[in-house]
Amino acid sequence: MKINFVLNGKGRVLNAPSDRRVIDFLREDLGLTGTKESCGAGECGVCTILVDGESRLSCLMFAAQLEGRNVLTIEGLASEETLHPMQEAFVQFGAVQCGFCTPGMILSALDLLKRNPHPTRTEIREGLSGNLCRCTGYQKIVDAVEATACKKEKGPPL
């Protein structure tokens, strides 16, 4: 079927079988391999994308469900030369190790800050609790999100 949607800021009309999983559509058909897959069952969060600004598990969605939506994958977050403040914080605070959870983690963190701009550390942990990380023990990820939230008060809106 034809799917009309916005992908990383650009309007696209693309063909895909309606039951193609969004994760496969993004990775295999569109080459957007920044979105990862690890469990295929909603248990790890590495396939997180933003759909109309809300975090979604792309392994539990069909391509048909993208019709008319605004989709942001990790590839669409940074502008040409500048990292998004959340990405920058992940780099600076050492929130990245193997990096396989990182794209999903960053996008979940953005969903969290949109709902709760000044979360406590516990609220950050709750907000990220659907995104597993096996390397970091989460602490530096929480640091990065906390720092981004603090900066947000003064800096440009996310």
Partner: peptide, 12 residues
Amino acid sequence: PRVDAYSKTTGQ
């Protein structure tokens, strides 16, 4: 900061 953190946070 680790060099790989840039490419990993951008999905590249």
